[in-house]
Write a protein that binds this DNA or RNA. Structure first.
Lengths: 200, 200, 200, 200
DNA sequence: AGCTAATCGAGACGGTACGTCACGTCTTTAG
DNA sequence: CTAAAGACGTGACGTACCGTCTCGATTAGCT
């Protein structure tokens, strides 16, 4: 039950924390993930290396926190999937926005860096999924349950699986760059998937 | 038209090439990708470092070639997707095998390493897709076209997109470890997707 | 006035400095100068290579410092040339000792290494001369001036040149190994030279 | 009595030999000795590395041969020390010429390289002395013997030692760069030394 | 004059060391 | 008394050369 050398988070300098997170995001954009180094982050942030090592176990963890902070700013009003009653239109709307975000240059480098690290590093991957991905996916679950209530999705369908039919193809194209990721593709995926989910 | 200092491949030592590829696969299994080093590969293979740098630009490229070589051995009889006339059964059969392969420990580490590297490194990713992934996906295209001919898949469906509804969810679970990747999940994905693809 | 990225010598580890110097002397004795490597010095000293590169520009510079440190220990009572009133005897005494030192195996290898490096590398040569050689030579100047005062050396003789007539032949035989370097040779050189320096 | 793999010098390519020697001299002038490499010599000479390794044991040996070849060209009429009857004038004449040669930039780098290597490498040093230095020194012995016959040098003087009093100080200044090597210095050394050698 | 064996240019190979970079830890120093 | 600054031991990087070893393609010297 010995308390092994854990830093006192009450005394933590918020100024340093922000500077580190900002520096990490800037640098990953400039250099890419593999050439990003803790020393460079410390230098850019005007911080001692130890201040980073005290609070994060790896550069991936720093980047994850930086990304989460980025998300929290953006999501002041945590977006829901709209419910106009037209499931197909609502999904197309959200997925087109997702396509645009994935294709936007400022998200691309840090997002790829984290995704790739999560593929290899199970622990970081779990945190990535828990903190960033799964909350997003739950929005789809919620919307699909509403559709099920409205009789637009067959009863025996498991929404957690259903959403993957819709979301995974986009992720696949983005991660592996097999073919271009376009609005048209998003629409087509929604159409094909929804045919399978609707009653009858 | 600049002749970029390229070594003479006629004089290349086949013995060294094999030793390097074998060592790379062994070591990525033992150490994982991030702790895999060129020096260790050279040491294990009984080869000078320069011999690696002469023929490959990075450890990821070595691993890709190692994986391709592995694939070529396995694929003496290049697997097709069976066609028993029952599309659903055929797909479930193949995807269950894929699930088993993805869950097998000897494929996992090198495959994740390559996938992750491909996510970050566009050039290597393109090669990964072209040499390993796309040939596999084309087998699905072929089987779906046959199904279309047999009237089991609606005419307006684009097989290249359709296959992604089936394959991407499995890839998604494997890459991001959101939820367990099981035979049951594969079956469910096939069922949901096929409902959307079949005529009417 | 450019501040060239220089480390902070106040924080320098004295323990590492000594270990490096000691290791360098040991190794040059065991391996000879051309087979002496920075890596081996670092290894023997239990020190990172960077710690050597941080403070010295080359292995020759390390060896020079090691040699200087050696000299400082030996020269607790900084040797003077004795003055018994008999210049010839005093010189013979000192030169015989020099011959013995030059012929002793523990001084030979590092001393040759430094001398040779100084022959090629003007900068290091200048430091070698300034820190090790010239102080020695000034002892001869001092003794010759005393002899001049005592009327044993002609007034018009320049002591700085005169000493070279005595010292250079020994250095020549030692450096180039033309003929053996013996006590008898030292005596003969003193005799020939002193005939030229005495009045009349 | 086994004949171990010695190349047949009758079949040796004279063209290659010259190209190698020329390239070595050029490169040592451009790069200095430590940065001179066998590979660079081979490249510049348009020759395979093996052709160098077949005929020479080290880069020092190549350079020595190159220097000897250089000497042989210059010394078509192998210079003698003049004998005008005035020993002092004759020595000053020759030594002033030596000073000029030692100070000339084209001889300096290769000559220092060889001298330095000879200081460290006993075997090469011996060859350097035997082939280049000692023949020169013997010219002094010859001239001093003639002076002894003419009664200008005392009978008990050993010419082989005497010459070193004259030559070694110049060599010393050149090798170690203690002080400038000038005509005046050469003259002074001759004067001081000759006072000691003359009868009385 | 043709054969044949050695030398030749070329350069891949297994190695060693280079000098640099970044790691994660530890120490010193200035605010 | 807390951090920044940065020196430290460690270890991998990618490069440069080492000296050895095949490769054809010329040469020569001998038959």
């Amino acid at each position: 039950m010995s308390e092994t050398r854990s830093p006192d988070s009450k005394r933590r300098s918020e100024r340093s924390r922000r500077a580190i997170l900002d520096a990490a995001l800037e640098l990953v954009g400039e250099l890419g993930y593999p050439r990003l180094t803790i020393e460079a982050i410390a230098g850019r942030a005007g911080v001692g290396k130890q201040t980073i090592y005290r609070w994060w176990p790896s550069k991936a963890a720093v980047l994850l926190d930086a990304f989460i902070a980025l998300g929290e700013e953006a999501a002041a009003g945590e977006h829901e999937i709209p419910n106009t009653g037209d499931l197909e239109a609502d999904l197309k709307f959200v997925l087109r926005a997702t396509v645009d975000e994935l294709n936007s240059p400022e998200y691309e480098l840090p997002a790829r860096a984290l995704a790739a690290e999560g593929v290899i590093n199970a622990e970081l991957g779990a945190e990535f999924v828990a903190k960033l991905l799964e909350p997003q996916l739950q929005l789809y679950v919620k919307r699909l349950l509403a559709a099920q209530d409205a009789g637009q999705v067959a009863e025996h369908i498991d929404p957690r699986v259903a959403l993957e039919l819709i979301v995974a193809p986009l992720a696949h194209r983005w991660l592996l760059r097999t073919l271009p990721l376009t609005h048209e593709y998003a629409d087509t995926v929604v159409e094909y998937a929804l045919r399978g989910l609707s009653p009858r």
